[in-house]
Write a protein that binds this DNA or RNA. Sequence first.
DNA 1: CGGGTGACAGATTTCAATATCTGTCACCCG
DNA 2: CGGGTGACAGATATTGAAATCTGTCACCCG
Lengths: 197, 197
Amino acid sequence: MSPAAAEPLTPERILETTEEVLRRYGPAKATVVDVARALGVSHGSVYRHFPSKAALREAVTQRWLGKTVGRLEEIASDGAGSAPSKLEAWLEALFDAKRHKAGDDPELFATYTVLLAENSGVVESHLAELVEQLGRIIAEGVEAGSLDVPDVPAAARAVFDATGRFHDPQYAAEWTSPTITREFEAVTSLVIRGLRA
Amino acid sequence: MSPAAAEPLTPERILETTEEVLRRYGPAKATVVDVARALGVSHGSVYRHFPSKAALREAVTQRWLGKTVGRLEEIASDGAGSAPSKLEAWLEALFDAKRHKAGDDPELFATYTVLLAENSGVVESHLAELVEQLGRIIAEGVEAGSLDVPDVPAAARAVFDATGRFHDPQYAAEWTSPTITREFEAVTSLVIRGLRA
DNA sequence: CGGGTGACAGATTTCAATATCTGTCACCCG
DNA sequence: CGGGTGACAGATATTGAAATCTGTCACCCG
């Protein structure tokens, strides 16, 4: 009895529509009823596929975080290049990805920043995955003799922490500063220098 | 016509009482009327000494930030000790000061975190002062040959940025983690190693 | 019988009225 | 006449009643 009731109702379609609704109404006003309305079903149906609004939002968050990881994974597992240059490329790719997400559609970025704050568990495992990638690059550098660190996982974590200003969404407002690139390079080169053999 | 109308009304007394009121009611509910009531005067009198509520809160903020600087300045201008060890001591003193402020009275700390967000101008010049202190230590190290950096102010800024997780109040919640000290040491030693000759 | 429905209870949000606060100013007092 | 007062006009915050939302469930349909 509504515009789009043709396709079968899958978790996938619900997630897509939820993103759409979040984009349109923002995190504060997007409701499960809105999502159901956009799908042309009753809100009870949405609860067949997701146990709660929180779970639905968590799934959307996970999806969004997943998009960045692919590109970074490529760099981390790329056979060519020295560890220091891979490290630099990886950190720059992370910063670029975040900066573009924030700059291209600030409202949507603000929406996801709210979702991130709501879903600290999802964020935590996402961060762990990124630190693990960093660890693999550093381990490779230690193997090859270009880097020298006593404790690879700790160093990976330290590199990630030290560059927080350039990937933590809480700092997004500063990413439009004209000097931010210079600052990024200063921190990055300082940190990489600190890892060198 | 009120409890404490003996002393003359000075900016100093107003500031003290404002701190008191902020401590009691929090940043959202502390009003100029509350401050005046606590002082036993009309709120019009408070406006004789401060042009606006914002200016009053700004002055309180500045006062609070000033308290940390003294101890750090001591370390920065201490004649004895090598630059790297002074750097480490300075960073640790900064972290300790923040961590204690946050841990000893979390509510008051939250109050000041709100004030900090309101008064970005005050914060900016406070941060500039801290970075300047770092710069003096680093310059000393370069002079003495223990450190080697191409651009001292940029390096000072980079050190400050890289250690943000351990002084930016936005991360205060993480300062109670049992692993935070280890993480602090990892970042600090990484950064100092990056500055070494 | 897997998947959808819509009525329902309790929790949460919205909205408009009411109250309080900010900032000004003419006036007052020692 | 420097410093304090309190009444006042917006601006902002509080409050409580009404509307909406979340999550459940008995029922229904192919």
